[in-house]
């Protein structure tokens, strides 16, 4: 039992050990999603159709972006409820400003960053994240309504054209969203900021004592969430071709759902941004398949709720030695390991 008896295994993976451990839930969700795709493709003729694939991918893009930002904030043991309003605000800014595409994109990104930074400033000055982002959720919604009182407006043509570009049947927005998520994953897992992010989310007090830059880390996390919500708003414009001050509403909770299904611990410090990709796929598939099956759309909410609870229950079970799934070793349980209870091993 002495410290000396532990083997000093040598690993040479270029990725961090914790980064890899965070991907385990993603693997699980990927398997389930792949299975769902395979079954649907076999049994459902309309599912296989190119138009359906294209619409599925268009549908995924906004949620991918906003869920990735949300995952970063949840990793800090925080939450961002304002992202839905921020998406709406982005769509109305795109549809109401009637300037060139470049100016519109710049405006939307600056507003996203500024809104996120505002959240971050509130949180580092001691406002509870739930309270802060609940407040800004209302504020951003109010601003969006002031800019554009009802759905409509005109999106500049030179913006709409690239946003709706499709390669084969793969939308450009989907590819850009994938790239955005991948970049954010790399930044959040494999940079100094990222490592500090996990430390702050794991124990903010310890992080302060270790003189890690806690404030800066939180400010960046919330700014990123605002920025990715604004990008998600642009991806939404590609679907609705207009501005809508309420269109983003469901995305705040959907983004939280996606992050949690992807294995990001709601208590902070554990998880992986990359895991939102299969999680968003699973949620989009649920909507898509129920639609195709002609099930009344309200059932989609119930289905997604069941998926959320079942997935987290499975993660929880896998966190125990007696669990059915063994993929969770080193997963997201917070300080409940055998070592911390001091039991004999």
């Amino acid at each position: 039992m002495s410290a000396l008896t532990h083997a000093t295994a040598r690993r040479a993976t270029p990725l961090g050990t914790t980064t890899l451990a965070g991907l385990k839930p993603a693997l699980f969700i990927t398997l389930i999603s792949a299975l769902a795709v395979a079954i649907a493709a076999v049994v459902s003729e309309p599912f296989r159709s190119p138009t359906n694939v294209e619409s599925l991918l268009f549908q995924m893009a906004p949620l991918l972006l906003v869920a990735a930002g949300q995952a970063v904030v949840i990793t800090t043991a925080g939450i961002d409820l304002s992202v839905g309003s921020m998406m709406s605000l982005a769509t109305v800014l795109a549809a109401a400003s009637s300037s060139s595409a470049g100016a519109v994109v710049a405006l939307v990104l600056v507003v996203g960053l500024a809104g996120g930074l505002l959240n971050g400033l509130g949180v580092v000055s001691g406002v509870n994240p739930l309270v802060m982002t609940l407040g800004t959720m209302a504020i951003f919604r109010g601003i969006a309504l002031l800019v554009l009182g009802q759905p409509g407006g005109i999106v500049p043509a030179d913006l709409l054209t690239p946003l709706t570009t499709v390669f084969g049947h793969v939308p450009l927005t989907f590819l850009l969203a994938l790239a955005g998520v991948a970049l954010l994953w790399l930044a959040s897992a494999e940079t100094r900021w990222g490592r500090t992010l996990f430390a702050v989310g794991g124990d903010e007090g310890h992080a302060r004592r270790a003189r890690l830059p806690v404030r800066r880390t939180l400010l960046i996390a919330y700014s990123v969430s605002g920025l990715f919500a604004a990008l998600g708003g642009l991806a939404l414009v590609a679907r609705i071709y207009s501005g809508d001050p309420n269109v983003g509403d469901p995305f705040a909770l959907d983004a939280i759902t996606a992050a949690l299904i992807g294995g990001v611990a709601v208590t902070g410090g554990r998880g992986s941004v990359l895991a939102v990709i299969p999680a968003v796929l699973l949620l989009a598939l649920t909507d898509n398949l129920l639609n195709l099956a002609g099930v009344f759309s309200y059932w989609q909410y119930i289905a997604k709720g069941v998926i959320l609870i079942a997935t987290l229950a499975a993660y929880h079970a896998a966190g125990r030695p007696s669990g059915l799934l063994t993929m969770a070793r080193g997963g997201w349980r917070k300080g409940a390991g055998d070592a911390s209870t001091g039991g004999a091993r």
Binding site: G16, T17, T18, R195, F198, A199, G202, D203, G205, H206, A207, R209, A210, G269, R270, K334, G335, G337, S340
Partner: peptide
Amino acid sequence: LSLFPQLTVAE
């Protein structure tokens, strides 16, 4: 102790 339990020794 002020270690971060979810991170590895090296991290």
